[in-house]
Simulated assay, not measured.
Amino acid sequence: MTTIYHNPACGTSRNTLALIRNTGEEPEIIEYLHTPPSRETLTKLIRDAGLTVREAIRQHGTPYAELGLDNPSLDDHALIDAMLAHPILINRPFVVADKGTRLCRPSELVLDILDRPQRGAFAKEDGEAIVDAQGCRIAKPAR
């Protein structure tokens, strides 16, 4: 079973959810702004995704600066406290699947942890093609 910590107002989160659904699976959807994870769950998501707590904090469009969270002396416990008090600070979307946990930014990172193949072509909301008609990931040209 795949679980997505989702914000329906976020394009990246919507694209990630659509990529999961393109496999034919309907994931468990947790709208974390309404149902925030527990401290234990949030800590596990961050750890399992291979991130630091600071890497899991969303800065833009949040009270990050107003709360002084850019202060390097703040420890992980204080940062987690802020994320739990203000769930908008939790970067999204986190996805938990059989093959692992990822912060799916960009959304196509979810393809690395899904068990089921894509069932057809997929393009992001902005039109960027991610998966071809055969369900294969489209390689991005080298920059």
Score class of each variant (00 low, 15 high):
11 G>N: 11
90 I>A: 01
106 P>R: 11
69 L>A: 01
89 L>A: 03
47 R>Y: 08
102 R>N: 01
16 T>R: 08
17 L>V: 07
120 G>L: 03
25 E>T: 15
131 V>I: 11
50 G>E: 06
88 I>N: 05
81 D>F: 14
62 T>A: 08
25 E>C: 13
6 H>L: 04
89 L>H: 07
91 N>T: 05
56 A>F: 08
27 P>M: 02
80 I>L: 14
139 A>K: 15
137 R>E: 00
57 I>D: 00
42 L>K: 01
119 R>Q: 10
128 E>L: 13
21 R>H: 03
141 P>Q: 15
82 A>H: 07
97 A>P: 03
115 D>Y: 01
123 A>H: 14
126 D>I: 12
20 I>F: 06
69 L>Q: 01
101 T>G: 05
2 T>V: 15
115 D>W: 09
6 H>I: 06
122 F>P: 00
110 V>C: 10
13 S>Q: 02
21 R>Q: 12
135 G>R: 08
27 P>T: 03
63 P>W: 13
75 D>A: 12
124 K>I: 00
3 T>N: 02
110 V>K: 02
80 I>M: 03
73 S>A: 15
104 C>A: 13
37 P>D: 08
129 A>I: 12
80 I>R: 05
45 L>S: 03
55 E>H: 14
40 E>I: 13
81 D>V: 09
74 L>H: 15
139 A>C: 12
66 E>N: 13
81 D>P: 05
93 P>D: 04
26 E>G: 05
134 Q>H: 14
105 R>D: 06
3 T>H: 02
117 P>V: 07
109 L>T: 10
73 S>G: 12
68 G>Q: 12
11 G>V: 12
27 P>V: 05
14 R>N: 01
122 F>K: 02
72 P>Q: 10
68 G>N: 13
95 V>A: 05
103 L>C: 11
48 D>C: 10
16 T>C: 09
94 F>V: 03
90 I>K: 08
102 R>V: 15
80 I>Q: 04
76 D>C: 09
60 H>E: 10
44 K>M: 12
42 L>G: 01
121 A>T: 06
61 G>P: 12
14 R>S: 02
16 T>K: 03
120 G>C: 04
117 P>S: 06
95 V>P: 00
2 T>Q: 06
137 R>G: 01
39 R>L: 06
31 E>D: 14
109 L>E: 08
67 L>M: 03
133 A>Q: 14
112 D>C: 11
130 I>L: 04
9 A>Y: 13
113 I>Y: 04
77 H>D: 12
117 P>Y: 09
25 E>M: 14
74 L>K: 14
138 I>Y: 04
110 V>E: 00
71 N>W: 11
55 E>V: 09
